[in-house]
Amino acid sequence: MLDRRRVLQTLAGLFLSSFGLGGYAYAWEPAHQGVTRYRLKPARWPDGRRLRVAVISDLHVGGPHMPVARVREIVDQTNALKPDLALLLGDFVASRARYPDDPAPAEWAAELARLVASAGRFAVLGNHDWWQDERAQRELQGPTQSTLALEAAGIPVLENRAIRLDTKAGPLWIAGLGDQEAFVLRRRPRGFRYGVDDLPATLAMVDDGAPLILMAHEPDIFAEVPGRVDLTLSGHTHGGQVRLFGWSPIVPSRYGNRYAYGHVRENGRDLVVSAGLGTSKLPIRLGAPPEIVLIELG
């Protein structure tokens, strides 16, 4: 026979545990980023050449856990890693319509301009950078407010563009893909694509055999990326924001958990998906803590 007091104690314990877990997922985990490190040598990477690449993704400034002061903290933490290259993977703004008291794009862009990397700092846009921009959505074209703010701060936005760099590891191509979901929420003329991505045109700019890194906000494009690309870097998924035992119940990808998080190697090709730093839609993280990614190549 069940003891009434024991049943009540058990129920109370379950309630308090759930409350504590919810508090952790809302108040603690989303607000404390760490550094996730990868050591990679893509198949075509030259022997003896090393390069440190810092990746910042999905800040969602203006969201419940991302004031401009935290962007400043993230930049300081990234600079302490002494990267050779700093790559920003999009979704700089909150995942909702802009509020009047949201930080101006120039504010968070000024903080990102403090990033120090000897080989340069480069960005691509994410879907929310497009979705929050009413003019870009109305006219179905950029530049977005995020683009203008970043470039005014001295950070090039690579939209279907590849550039060749001279780095301490030798020549290197950095390619940036236009966002694949720029106009998902907007009614479009018949035949008008909902993304601004153009992978073939982007890769056509690469005219020699130097290593090539592709920045693409959404990881789904990786299924189409050719072997010429040595490393693809993506964000967007937030690792699902809730990740239990290496599995996320909800992933904003048509491939589900295949490209949800971390280092993925398929057919000799390498992809790294960052869990990002801010939150999207639900203001929680559980088992998918915010992260700055540092990739040591070579």
Rank of each mutant, 00 (worst) to 15 (best):
L177M: 04
V196D: 08
L172Q: 07
R186Q: 15
D198V: 02
A175L: 12
Q180W: 15
T202E: 10
L185W: 09
P200F: 04
D198P: 03
R186S: 12
D166M: 14
P189F: 01
A204T: 04
I163F: 04
I174T: 10
I163C: 11
G191D: 02
L199F: 08
L185D: 14
D198C: 05
P200S: 03
L172A: 00
D198Q: 01
D197I: 03
L185E: 14
W173Y: 05
T202V: 07
A162G: 12
L199I: 04
D166L: 15
F192C: 13
V184A: 13
L203N: 06
V206T: 04
D179C: 04
A175C: 13
M205R: 15
L165H: 08
D179Y: 07
A162I: 01
V206P: 01
K168G: 12
F183Y: 15
L185N: 14
A204M: 05
G178I: 01
W173E: 05
D198T: 04
L165F: 09
A175K: 12
I174D: 11
D179Q: 03
M205Q: 15
T202I: 02
A201M: 05
R164S: 09
P171D: 03
G170Q: 06
R186I: 00
E181Y: 14
G195I: 06
G170L: 01
A182I: 06
A204Q: 10
V184H: 10
I163Y: 05
G170I: 01
L199E: 11
P200R: 07
M205H: 11
R188C: 10
A169P: 06
F192L: 15
A162W: 02
R193I: 03
L185Q: 13
T202P: 05
L199N: 08
V206L: 01
R161S: 10
A201T: 11
W173L: 08
I163Q: 12
L185C: 07
I163T: 11
